[in-house]
Design a protein around this nucleic acid. Structure first.
Lengths: 188, 188
DNA sequence: CGTTAGTTTGAGAGGACTCAAAGTCTGTGG
DNA sequence: CCACAGACTTTGAGTCCTCTCAAACTAACG
């Protein structure tokens, strides 16, 4: 259970008091491969942390699943902030492998934010880090060819390529699955 | 000078105490059209707020200027978080029109964050809002055609199209200036 | 009113897409 | 332990969108 707190503590060192306050709010849960974790992310009441396993967030765009986030062990589901204002697209969370999640309700999180300035600070810093990742993704879609994006992906996330089906990775990289298959054949 | 504080207060209502603490940290400055505000954003010590006018952030990518952010009146420059880890690309800030900026040093900002929990909270919320905008930009590049992106842009920022040159908008939208010129001709 | 910045237009090339079909892998049941 | 069904990946052919290069046009500014 403490892996999550260690993860947070590595981002911003936390007081024992804050750590102790977080601890009782956490819930651990196991999921099997290809299991739905959250049917509709927008109305989910929990923030999740992947302790072990691999999950993904995706939604349907014209009958096709678009994976827009992979959650490796030791990552927070928070970073996917989205709103689908007009189109009622449902953003779903599923496991790709057997997975252990640690979860905290937004309710409790809000309370912790109010109680502990240092946690509010942590939340701010995580948000800023996530912005950087998003910015990188923008650059990669905007300026890199399909092949370059693929190379970038395998260097950044070498393990996912063996753990997730091609189609999910292709949609994550913003390209056709067929294109990804071709691109990876062209001598990396 | 208070326009900035009002802007913040609209996001998260602030105590008078916090407002009064921010006030003396602010600096107002005027710039002319096409003037450089910050030569290298990465090493800038200030956070800016556009009170009046229009500015942009850009960098050079293979001899070409890529505008990746427009700052209309009433917007914060903060949202552009970037790092250019390997390539020493310089991110610059320039005015497009005569502009009035309100600025606060990161030093003072940090102090305010530490002193006022509510400001730290404000910072967190602004970061999260910015993430949403980035996410939208990702969707727009990833799924929309050049024409759709253009339409989306003119509905979101109807004034910029008349105030900034085409080339800047094209690079912002991730397309060629020539393409943008064609796209806009095809009956919107 | 000339010079330069900005925009449009034309022609041709190339990357990524779609549709379609053929392989390949994986897991389950006989 | 093998066979088969379904999921996943590869390959092929043809098309379209956007890019590049180049040149003509237009607007803005001193």
């Amino acid at each position: 259970m403490t892996l999550f707190i260690e993860y947070l503590n590595a981002i911003v060192p936390l007081s024992d008091e804050a750590k102790n306050a977080i601890y009782p709010c956490l819930k651990k849960q196991h999921y099997k491969k290809n299991e739905t974790i959250v049917r509709e992310l927008a109305s989910s009441q929990y923030l999740h942390f992947v302790e072990k396993g691999l999950i993904r967030a995706f939604y349907l765009k014209e009958e096709k699943e678009i994976t827009d986030w992979f959650g490796l062990e030791k990552s927070i589901v928070g970073p996917i902030v989205r709103n689908f204002p007009i189109k009622k697209t449902i953003h779903r969370l599923e496991t790709i492998e057997d997975t252990t999640l640690i979860s905290i309700s937004f309710n409790n999180l809000e309370k912790l934010y109010f109680q502990y300035h240092e946690l509010e600070r942590l939340g701010r810093i995580i948000a800023i880090q996530s912005m950087l990742l998003l910015q990188q993704k923008i650059d990669s879609i905007q300026f890199y060819s399909a092949k370059e994006r693929y190379i970038d992906f395998i260097t950044s996330y070498p393990t996912i390529i063996q753990r997730a089906p091609l189609g999910m990775i292709a949609s994550y990289l913003g390209m056709n699955q067929v294109t990804l298959s071709r691109v990876r054949k062209m001598n990396v």
